[in-house]
Structure formats: C-alpha cells, structure tokens
Simulated assay, not measured.
Amino acid sequence: MPKLSVIVPCYYNEGNIPVTTRELVANEANFPPEVSFEYVFVNDGSGDDTLAALQSAQVMYPGRIRIVDLAGNVGSYNAIVAGMAHATGDCLAVITADMQDPPELMVQMYAHWQKGFKLVIGNRQHREETGLGQTMAKTFHWLMKNLALSNIPDGGFDFVFFDRQVADEVLKLHERNSNVFYLMIWLGFPYVNIPYTRRKREIGKSRWTLSKKIKLLIDSLMAFSFVPIRAISVLGLGLGAIALLYGLYVVALKIASPDEPAGWTTLMVVLLIVSAFQMVALGVIGEYVWRGLDAARKRPLYVVREVLEPNKEAQQQQWRR
C-alpha cells in the first residue's frame, strides 16, 4: 500500500492553513483507494499564529498531519529539506501553503510515479500574476536555463512529486546555499514535465521579498554554474588584449612624437576600468570563497524545536480504510 507524504513549508501562513488543509484532504478522493497520506507541515519560524493554526488542523484531521516546528527562520528550501527528513512516505510531493499550485495535479503526478518515473515536475507555463514579479521570475529561470542547467523546463517550478530514493539522495548531499529543486534535476533521473497555470495568491501577503529573490539567483548560479568565474577570466583576457594594444600604440606614439605629453585622461580611464574589474572579480571570487567557508563549518541547515506527531491510532484506522 503506497504512502504519499506531502511536504508544505509554512512561513506566515496563518490564514492559509485552514483552506490548504481542507483542499489537500479533499483531494485524497481523487487518488486510488489504496493510497495512504501524511502531510508534513514545516513551520519555518513564523512570527504569527501559523503553529496554532497547524495544531488546530491536526486536531480536525487526526492521523494525517505531522508538524515540524523549526527553532528559527531558515528559508523555504531548508524547510523543505527538514520536511523530507521527517517524511515517511514511499513517494513525496512539495506544494506551497498558499494554494497557488493546484493539488489535483498530484493525481497525474502519482500516475507517472507508478509508471516508474522517480521525478515529476509541475511546470509553471502561465501565471495569473502580473507585473514586476512575473518579469523577474521569467528572467531568473531564463538565466538558470542558459547559464547553469540547460535541462530544466522553461518557466520554472517549485511543485514537484518524487520518489523516496530522490529524497534520500538529496539529503545525502547536505548542500548549503543551494536550490533543492535544481538538485533533484542535477541528480540525473529522467523526469516528466506537466504544465499548469499558477494561480494568483488570494489569502495573505507573500514574504518572498526582493532580497530573497536576489539571494536565490546568486545561490543558484553559484551552486550550478561556473559562468561567473569563467566570465572573469574572459573579461580579464579581453582587458589584457586591449591593454597590450594600447601599450603598443603608446610606444609607437612616443617614438613618432617624442615631445607628446602623457594623456592624463587616458591614464585615469584605464586605471578606473582596471580597478573596477578588480573589484568585480574580487566580489565574485569572494562569493565562492564564502560558500566554501560556510560548507566547511558544517553548521546544521535547520534546528527542530519540536515535532508534533499525528495520532497513531487514528492514522492506523485511516490506513485500514
């Protein structure tokens, strides 16, 4: 009897929890009767009443919900890793707590998993969102596809269904400052891509700030691409070639016109260009060095304050049904 673990990272989702749990439980009716369910909600250091809302849902739906309460906010990707570590299913899914991703899509994902695919991706081909957020998302995924992982689907994704083996392999990596979904792609398992339209958020306000988006872009590029460090080498060679040609020009000018005064403006422009390049190069190198230092520390990705288990007796009754 296969067991599906649905991982839901939560951060300031107090108002979403009642709707999310209701829709997830209602979606069980669309699955074959032999499938059992557990929902692993990870409270990522929320400062509102998200934990209380989760505890209420745990009482309302006995035997289904496991709550992993983290000691502090560690980011959604680390929260997902925590959920993977505490999930016990044969197959797992990750879905957002704001219900922008349709839970009914998991039925198709499960069917592909039964056919032997270890990774199934819900690909956002269209968004009901508009404006700057949509433009930034498209730019981010274009950069990742062209500079890092060429085999990722267009439009991006954060709704996935995967086998227990994929979860175990990701947990073994102990990756820091990375992108857990891209790690699943990087593992190399063949995957199925299911397109869908991402809904507009109806409840609450997104905490996915601009600074977090920029950090995710930097982390993803640094984790999966050598392009930034390669760009420094190419730019350095280009500037070196320009400097060599300019040096030859200055020598030739000096020979042809010995009394020609040195160009102060030209000297300053060259100096500024080279200095600017050096600062950019040091910044990019520093990003890689910092990530190496962070990995060498081996600090935990998350700290669990408490795990609230579902009612075991009610869970056994659910499985028997």
Rank of each mutant, 00 (worst) to 15 (best):
F277C: 04
K3G: 01
S46R: 13
A281E: 00
Q315A: 15
L308K: 07
A262H: 08
V250E: 05
M184G: 00
A276K: 10
P9Q: 14
E34Q: 14
G263C: 09
E306L: 08
Y191G: 01
L239K: 07
E287K: 02
I80F: 04
A276P: 00
N151Y: 01
S225M: 05
W208Y: 02
V40Y: 11
A296N: 08
K298R: 12
Q315L: 13
A148V: 04
R299P: 04
A296T: 03
D90S: 12
D219H: 08
Q58D: 02
D90F: 11
Y12A: 04
V94Y: 13
E38V: 07
L301T: 04
W319T: 15
A223C: 08
E14Y: 02
S178L: 06
Q315F: 03
N123Q: 13
K118R: 14
K115H: 05
G122W: 03
S150F: 06
S211E: 11
V303D: 08
P190G: 05
G45I: 11
L24G: 06
W142R: 14
F41M: 08
H126N: 07
Y191F: 08
P103V: 03
P103S: 03
Q278R: 10
D154H: 02
N179D: 03
M268C: 04
D101R: 01
G236D: 01
T265L: 14
Y302C: 04
I255T: 04
N78V: 05
E104H: 07
A252L: 11
W208K: 08
F189N: 05
L301H: 05
N27D: 04
W290H: 15
L92A: 09
R201K: 15
P261R: 05
G236L: 10
E309L: 15
R299W: 07
P62S: 10
R297H: 08
G15E: 10
V234K: 06
W142P: 00
V269S: 07
H112V: 02
V270P: 01
I65Y: 12
Y110L: 05
Y12C: 06
I273F: 10
I214H: 11
I232F: 03
A52Y: 09
C91A: 13
E313F: 02
H126Y: 00
W208F: 06
T50A: 12
I203A: 03
S206Q: 10
T265M: 13
E260N: 06
E202V: 14
W290R: 15
S178P: 00
R198D: 10
V42L: 05
K138D: 03
T21I: 15
F181K: 02
D90Y: 14
N179P: 00
D48Y: 12
P18T: 15
V269N: 08
V107L: 07
L119I: 10
I194H: 09
G240A: 14
I185G: 01
E34T: 12
T88S: 15
T209Y: 01
M144F: 07
D259I: 06
W264F: 06
G63I: 13
V74Y: 09
Q316N: 14
E169D: 14
A243K: 08
K145L: 03
M136E: 11
P153V: 00
I218K: 13
G263H: 09
L70G: 11
I232S: 04
A52N: 11
V284R: 05
F162Q: 02
Q134K: 13
E202P: 07
V250I: 05
A296K: 12
R164C: 01
R199E: 12
V269F: 06
G263N: 13
Q114D: 04
Q315Y: 02
